Computed example of a mutant assay.
Amino acid sequence: MRLRQKVTAEFVGSAFLVAAVIGSGIAASRLSPEDVGLQLLENSVVTGAVLVALILALHPVSASFNPVITVLERVLGTIPTRVAAALVAAQVAGAVVGAVVANLMFDEPAISISQHVRTGPGLWLGEAVATLGLVVIVFGTLRGADRSRVAFAVGGYILGAYWFTSSTSFANPAVTVARTLSDTFAGIAPASVPAFVLAQILGGAAGLGVVTLLHPRRSDTATLPSVKARS
């Protein structure tokens, strides 16, 4: 598979993922203005469903949509440094475009810096836990007997993690950065991003340790570039 195709798939997938996260957040806040719980339900269901669809459609080419997953692929030796760097750049660029498009679809300014401060030890722990779980789900499913289930495993996990983590499971540095560009339901203030990303990195590292312990074989991970995840 050519690098150009992989980069395009990561860009498109990340753009649609962020558009789903932010767009459904805006729609939810307008449709259910008095019920935050219902807003979160609407936002999480849409995100999980779109994530499943994107992974199913794009995984023959590349469907990580997440710098943490891509970097761990590099650590595991399944992709070279040059490819990993290109995919991460595509993920961030696609996520930014997705945020802008979501804003414009709902007649919001193309870019509006979020004022939604998300900070505190509980939220940081929530992000670490969310990312740890995502890594275990992604690589654990891929190292299992039926890789075709990864889309449903990841989509289901993200839907659930919206609810059981205090941070609502961003679990993705590219998505986190993009969400600073929308001062809406799904936004996050720029000042809150560094701690979130650090928690995601730590959670990803811990997740890799768990996967390595549970699934020590490496031969069955030779083609990981084809799948993975969120938001």
Results as ranks from 00 to 15, higher is better:
residue 6 K to H: 02
residue 6 K to R: 15
residue 6 K to T: 01
residue 6 K to M: 11
residue 6 K to P: 01
residue 7 V to Y: 04
residue 8 T to Q: 06
residue 8 T to N: 04
residue 9 A to Q: 06
residue 9 A to S: 15
residue 10 E to G: 10
residue 10 E to Y: 06
residue 11 F to D: 04
residue 11 F to S: 08
residue 14 S to K: 13
residue 14 S to C: 14
residue 14 S to N: 08
residue 15 A to I: 07
residue 16 F to R: 09
residue 16 F to M: 13
residue 17 L to S: 04
residue 17 L to D: 03
residue 17 L to Y: 10
residue 17 L to Q: 09
residue 20 A to D: 08
residue 21 V to A: 10
residue 21 V to T: 08
residue 21 V to P: 00
residue 22 I to W: 02
residue 22 I to M: 06
residue 22 I to Y: 02
residue 22 I to A: 02
residue 23 G to V: 06
residue 24 S to N: 10
residue 24 S to Y: 07
residue 24 S to C: 07
residue 24 S to V: 07
residue 25 G to W: 03
residue 25 G to I: 05
residue 25 G to F: 02
residue 25 G to E: 02
residue 25 G to Q: 05
residue 26 I to W: 00
residue 26 I to C: 03
residue 27 A to F: 11
residue 27 A to R: 08
residue 28 A to Q: 06
residue 28 A to L: 07
residue 28 A to Y: 07
residue 29 S to W: 00
residue 29 S to Y: 00
residue 30 R to Q: 11
residue 30 R to S: 03
residue 31 L to I: 12
residue 31 L to A: 14
residue 31 L to D: 01
residue 31 L to N: 05
residue 32 S to G: 00
residue 32 S to Y: 14
residue 32 S to N: 03
residue 32 S to K: 01
residue 33 P to H: 01
residue 33 P to R: 02
residue 34 E to W: 05
residue 35 D to I: 08
residue 35 D to M: 06
residue 35 D to L: 09
residue 36 V to H: 09
residue 36 V to Q: 11
residue 37 G to W: 13
residue 37 G to T: 10
residue 38 L to Q: 13
residue 38 L to E: 05
residue 39 Q to S: 04
residue 40 L to D: 00
residue 41 L to S: 12
residue 42 E to K: 04
residue 43 N to Q: 08
residue 43 N to W: 12
residue 43 N to Y: 10
residue 44 S to A: 15
residue 45 V to T: 12
residue 45 V to R: 06
residue 45 V to H: 05
residue 45 V to G: 12
residue 45 V to F: 15
residue 47 T to G: 02
residue 47 T to I: 04
residue 48 G to Y: 07
residue 48 G to T: 03
residue 48 G to A: 05
residue 49 A to M: 14
residue 49 A to T: 15
residue 49 A to H: 00
residue 51 L to N: 11
residue 52 V to E: 10
residue 53 A to F: 10
residue 53 A to Q: 09
residue 54 L to Y: 07
residue 54 L to A: 07
residue 54 L to W: 08
residue 55 I to W: 11
residue 55 I to R: 13
residue 55 I to L: 04
residue 55 I to T: 11
residue 56 L to F: 13
residue 57 A to S: 15
residue 57 A to R: 11
residue 58 L to W: 03
residue 58 L to M: 09
residue 59 H to N: 15
residue 59 H to L: 01
residue 59 H to G: 05
residue 60 P to M: 04
residue 60 P to I: 02
residue 60 P to K: 10
residue 61 V to G: 02
residue 63 A to V: 05
residue 64 S to F: 14
residue 64 S to N: 15
residue 65 F to P: 02
residue 65 F to Y: 14
residue 65 F to D: 00
residue 66 N to D: 02
residue 67 P to C: 04
residue 67 P to Q: 08
residue 67 P to T: 04
residue 67 P to Y: 08
residue 68 V to M: 14
residue 69 I to M: 11
residue 69 I to K: 01
residue 69 I to S: 07
residue 69 I to V: 15
residue 69 I to T: 12
residue 70 T to G: 05
residue 70 T to E: 06
residue 70 T to I: 05
residue 71 V to Q: 03
residue 71 V to H: 01
residue 73 E to Q: 15
residue 73 E to C: 13
residue 73 E to T: 03
residue 74 R to L: 11
residue 74 R to N: 03
residue 74 R to D: 00
residue 75 V to E: 00
residue 75 V to R: 10
residue 76 L to V: 03
residue 77 G to R: 09
residue 78 T to I: 03
residue 78 T to F: 01
residue 78 T to H: 02
residue 79 I to Y: 02
residue 79 I to M: 04
residue 79 I to V: 12
